[in-house]
Design a protein around this nucleic acid. Structure first.
Lengths: 146, 146
DNA sequence: GTGCGTGCAAAGTATTTGCATGATG
DNA sequence: CATCATGCAAATACTTTGCACGCAC
């Protein structure tokens, strides 16, 4: 049984515990999203799920994605200034973002996190979360093939 | 002479070199902004400058702030998901953001930057810029006074 | 059956743009 | 005096909300 089914189950649990209701639309959106690898906009989720579940509404996608975030199953990211992108929650990580081709590379660095804690101490700041986005050129875009 | 006047001069230079024109509005907005310490929204800049220069228009503020960014004199920041905030450009730094009171603390940490470069090397990624925002509670909000 | 969920359209934010008029180089 | 800049309103992009109807529990 894949991560997909486990997540769907967790989502249904979350919904039940909140006194909400399971619906075909919620399952369709969540189910489709759990299979997606990467960062995706509400608009694209809408268009993709619409192919399977034609009656789906825009607002339902937004409302469901918000629920998934609250359930801890999705993360809403705001890179640059455009629309929000959603990603499946996995281990914590940060991002390299290629400003040329838009490619997003995830990475993780415990040493940096440790230094953040150290820096925070100077200001008696209590860290809850952070966002680190590094912009530049990915391998392909940095060395043009010619 | 103060940083204020030096910046105004740099802005006028930039405008001239681009074949654009100096106007009272551009000077009013830029001049007011250069004196502001902190992070401020276009809307608030508009309302503040309006007090000095009542005829000012909303779009002129947006257009001027964009010019200031292109001139390298302002930075546009997108914290969280709300509106953009502008800050005067100074040395590079990152931000602690209090999720309770909204306070923004600037800090700088060369060790973290070095580790970013190191991490980037693994992906042959060429760093152009980065954004590191650390969310949590500032000193005042972390230890309630009671 | 009751209340939550849905789809639609309309409203909300934040920002940008078209256009007629006005100021600058 | 040709351009560019301005202020306004309308347009845009993204997201949220009100509402009548329908489905889950």
């Amino acid at each position: 049984m894949g991560a997909h089914d486990e997540k769907l189950e967790r989502f249904r649990d979350f919904i039940r515990k909140r006194g909400l209701k399971s619906t075909r639309q919620r399952d369709d959106i969540a189910g489709w999203f759990f299979d997606y690898k990467g960062h995706i906009s509400a608009d694209r989720i809408y268009r993709e799920v619409k192919r399977v579940s034609p009656g789906i509404g825009f607002s339902t996608v937004y409302r469901t994605m918000k629920l998934l975030c609250e359930a801890g199953l999705a993360h809403e990211r705001h890179f640059g200034e455009g629309e929000a992108l959603y990603e499946n929650v996995s281990a914590h990580h940060d991002h390299f973002i290629c400003t040329d081709c838009g490619r997003i590379i995830e990475f993780e660095n415990p040493q940096i996190e440790a230094l953040q804690e150290l820096a925070a101490r100077d200001f008696r700041f209590v860290i809850k979360s952070h966002k680190m986005e590094i912009y530049g050129l990915c391998e392909g875009c940095a060395q043009p093939t010619r």
